[in-house]
């Protein structure tokens, strides 16, 4: 039987223990390194997925705007033209009737010379005019041409002006117009649509009689606040609701594309306030571009 000397045992112990300690140290370092590496990869994957989702969202929003433009263009070019022609025809008809009444003396056309016929003609005329006004308003709502040409501040002012025509509530707009630089079309459009959504929400749900829109620069960010004096709401509860939260989710979707954020708070005992912040982009030329109001995006033909 082999017997080991104390020196041999000492050496064997030393080697075995050192090897074991090295392996333990290696295991610890490996876990730290591998876990960090895996997390980095997972983060990259999440970023790719997030970017892809953003791209999808951006495409969806872009398609929505394109569709709005298309409908606006169809309304303007087809319906608008036809209505103008109808109005013109009615004008000509009126001239025919009133300038040459002898033509209406024949027994067949006698009923056209009655006061009732004149009334009907006037009514048709005013209906056509009213329809033209409505079509123009719908077209303007669909595509805010002022936004493209004169920027966000002018577009909001125009929007408020139109609100004054239709609603009996006070809408105020405070802005340091000179300070707000022109942003890219998608940023301005997103902010405009968000403002529209918030104001519409306030009118529809808040039961308010005053809305204040504020737009200003704050530490390298454009800040827009929409405040109302209505009954207020709990954003967290509404967002979880399937139907009611759609508008708020739309706002968040639009903001995620332009790297913005929204906070909802209660300004006082009553009312609600939405505070939107987006980073300021490099300054865009203030000179208005010569745009056709309903131009389609340029396509390159191969």
């Amino acid at each position: 039987m082999t017997t080991f000397t104390p020196e041999q045992i000492r050496l064997a112990l030393m080697i075995a223990t050192s090897a074991m300690l090295i392996m333990a140290g290696f295991a610890i370092v490996f876990v730290i390194y591998y876990q960090k590496k895996q997390l980095e990869q997972e983060k990259k994957l999440r970023d790719v997925e997030k970017n892809y989702q953003l791209m999808l969202l951006e495409t969806a929003l872009h398609s929505e705007e394109s569709e709005r433009r298309r409908i606006a263009q169809d309304l303007h070019d087809d319906i608008g033209t036809m209505l103008s022609l109808t109005k013109l025809s009615l004008n000509q008809l009126a001239k025919l009737i009133y300038r040459d009444p002898t033509r209406l003396t024949s027994p067949d056309a006698a009923h056209l010379n009655s006061p009732r016929a004149e009334l009907t003609l006037n009514k048709a005329h005013s209906l056509v005019e009213e329809t033209i006004v409505h079509v123009r308003r719908i077209t303007r709502d669909l595509v805010p041409t002022t936004l493209d040409q004169f920027g966000l501040v002018a577009a909001i002012e125009e929007f408020i002006h139109r609100m004054g025509e239709n609603y009996t509530l006070s809408v105020q707009f405070h802005c340091d117009g000179e300070e707000i630089p022109r942003q890219s079309p998608r940023v301005e459009l997103a902010l405009y649509r968000i403002m529209q959504e918030l104001v519409n929400n306030a009118i529809k749900h808040a039961n308010c009689d005053e809305i204040v829109i504020e737009l200003h620069l704050d530490e390298g960010k454009i800040e827009m606040q929409v405040t109302d004096n209505g009954k207020g709401f709990d954003a967290a509860t509404i967002k979880t609701s399937d139907k009611a939260g759609l508008g708020l989710r739309n706002i968040e979707s639009r903001l995620s594309v332009i790297n913005g954020e929204v906070k909802y708070q209660k300004p006082g005992v009553r009312g609600s306030q939405a505070r939107i912040q987006i980073p300021v982009e490099p300054q865009r030329s203030a000179k208005p571009e010569p745009l056709h109001p309903f131009r389609r995006p340029a396509t390159v033909k191969g």
Partner: peptide, 26 residues
Amino acid sequence: VSNILGYPFFWVCAGLLIFYSGNIFY
């Protein structure tokens, strides 16, 4: 675990591994 170096039980495990690896042959 997002930050393993800040995860308390990881350090306890590292301590246990060092202790028992250093003693297992002894």
